[in-house]
Design a protein around this nucleic acid. Structure first.
Lengths: 339, 339
DNA sequence: GACGCTGTTGTTAACGCTAACAATCATCAG
DNA sequence: CTGATGATTGTTAGCGTTAACAACAGCGTC
């Protein structure tokens, strides 16, 4: 971003000439090597500033074999959670001097995942982070080992690769116990897509909390993260309710589906929380403005991204950090009430 | 992603040796040069496949000065629109053989924008795309010329750099005319942040449509894209209404704010669309499940991304394409009704 | 049969940087 | 005073690729 036009390509030797030193000394200054006389460093720094010199990343990558870039492969980046995590990831990466290159999978196939990782390897990224991927793409992750560290964020609790994750089971249990404490006899569940490990974790947490409390475990309704699935679930649950089943509390695997359910209940004139209490998951910014404001389980997505980068850096330095899960938090609003 | 461990770094000469040709011939095959004998090409291709060779992007970037990478600089990537555009951008870029490197601005300052572009230039990106940036960061875009093409997506209708944009004025006019046609005497407006060019476009379109129809132009309420601002606006509008002002129709600069407004009206027991009609902007996937389902103006964000890449490629080939605006579309649902 | 094509291949030299080593100088202990 | 030590700087060689040029074949033409 030079002051005006002039796409000059100036290199270390230009700086060296201006400062009256060798290009290697410039390299040392740029890379913060210790043994440079303060006066020399000063001179070089001034020359760099005057010329507006920026080292060429490609040349550096060629010789060092590292591009100081992290590759992010993900799908569903248009959803709140992954997008928020991307934000945390990028900021932490930049703070650590890394760039972020992103690949968005066209589908959840193993082939798509392989291709993305291959591209990143050819780009000499220093590490690959997989974020919120599903199904076969996850299997691909598990099966193959790349020549660079490969870390997983929000793809379940990984066995194969270093992983950063939110304790989904705990989050689900928080929701269920909250409803049970309010006096509800049981809690219905609308799941996420079956091939999402996060969704499966929430199902496990929901089921376990119910069993631990000695409450009956109703058949879960299958969803797909979308509001439409929540709407459909709402229809089916009001039907169950009309048939006399015990439907007074519903826990949905994310907030969008909760919105859809709220909408369906509203159409059916079922009162929330009067007739049915509803709990979501994620705490999207809008959840506080649903009608009624949604009780939900908050995940700190940005923290997830930051931890992802921390884990990458540890791997790069050869340290073997065992990360804790991020702990979700119940946010009580007005969509839940006594049975 | 090699079958097993072994981070071998194999180069063209390895392939060349295996195929019994020179490394240059391998280079020609890899880059699809015309003058290679079919038999030779075949042999080289087989050697590449057998060895699992991938050309080293850094070396290529060093010698060609191009990394086949597009730099994306943006803020607010966690919002639906930008995230969706990112998706279109990445897919189109990948289809054209480009990678996408992203930088997310910490704030909308000129400094942040400069730094991001500088980093990209040092990375030898082939082009920089600015997506949905605001305020001073936009001024920075306008003022400086980078040594690479710099194109703007969804940052108003650019004068300085090639731009891809949605016709915001038209979209706003669509919303206003729809409400006016329903018999409303005027339409109130809740704006986006003042330093967003898109938000300003919507204000202009709203005002113009009102004036053209001879309707009074009420004082717009200032928002910031967030549901909370819509909620606050809802409070203020019901107040105006109680004071006897003509408040029967509201157009909000995005759907999140519309949700907040809906929530406020619901709390005040103001019926939508019975008492007040509401129109949003964006058509986020959830809008169809608000209560009531929201009438809104749809923007094709993914198309925006695809056009962005198309524009980048044109610039890179020296062509001078003048892009049309993307045309938004009114989606009528149940939040609007006769006055 | 010599000439100049054209199509195919190989050889060499960068690209801008870092790493390894060599060179120089001042300093200090013996 | 000499040799060793350490700090500072310079020199050289490569990283893996593409571009420019050279070389050589096969072919048709005069």
């Amino acid at each position: 971003m030079l002051p005006e036009g002039a796409p000059r390509a100036l290199g270390m030797s230009d700086v060296a000439a201006r400062a009256g030193v060798s290009h290697q000394t410039v390299s040392r200054v740029v890379n913060g090597h210790p043994n440079v006389a303060p006066a020399t460093r000063e001179r070089v720094l001034r020359a760099i500033a005057e010329l507006g010199y920026r080292p060429n990343a490609a040349a550096r990558a060629l010789v060092t074999g590292s591009s100081r870039t992290i590759g992010l492969v993900t799908s569903h980046i248009n959803q709140y959670g992954p997008a928020q995590t991307l934000l945390g990831l990028e900021q932490a990466a930049r703070a650590a001097g890394y760039s972020l290159s992103v690949a968005i999978l066209d589908d959840d196939s193993e082939r798509a995942m392989r291709e993305a990782v291959d591209r990143f390897v050819a780009q000499s990224v220093d590490a690959v982070v997989a974020l919120s991927t599903y199904g076969q793409a996850v299997d691909a992750l598990r099966r193959f080992t790349a020549p660079v560290p490969l870390i997983a964020v929000q793809v379940g609790r990984g066995e194969q690769h270093p992983t950063v994750w939110v304790d989904q089971e705990l989050g689900a249990a928080l929701a269920v116990r909250h409803l049970l404490d309010l006096g509800h006899r049981t809690v219905h569940h609308v799941t996420g897509p079956v091939d999402s490990l996060e969704a499966r974790g929430r199902v496990r947490g929901w089921r376990r909390a119910l069993i631990e409390a000695g409450a009956p475990v109703p058949e879960p309704l299958e969803g797909d993260w979308m509001a439409s699935a929540g709407y459909a679930a709402g229809r089916r649950l009001t039907e169950r309710r009309r048939r006399g089943e015990d439907v007074t509390a519903v826990f949905l695997a994310n907030d969008q589906m909760a919105l859809g359910l709220l909408n369906a209940l509203n159409e059916e004139s079922v009162s929330v929380p009067g007739d049915i209490s509803v709990v979501g998951f994620d705490d999207v910014p809008e959840a506080a403005y649903y009608s009624p404001p949604l009780t939900t389980v908050r995940q700190d997505f940005a923290e997830l991204g930051r931890r992802g980068v921390r884990l990458v850096l540890c791997r790069l330095h050869g340290e073997d950090l065992l990360p804790d899960p991020v702990v979700p938090q119940l946010i009580v609003r007005r969509s839940t009430g006594p049975a």
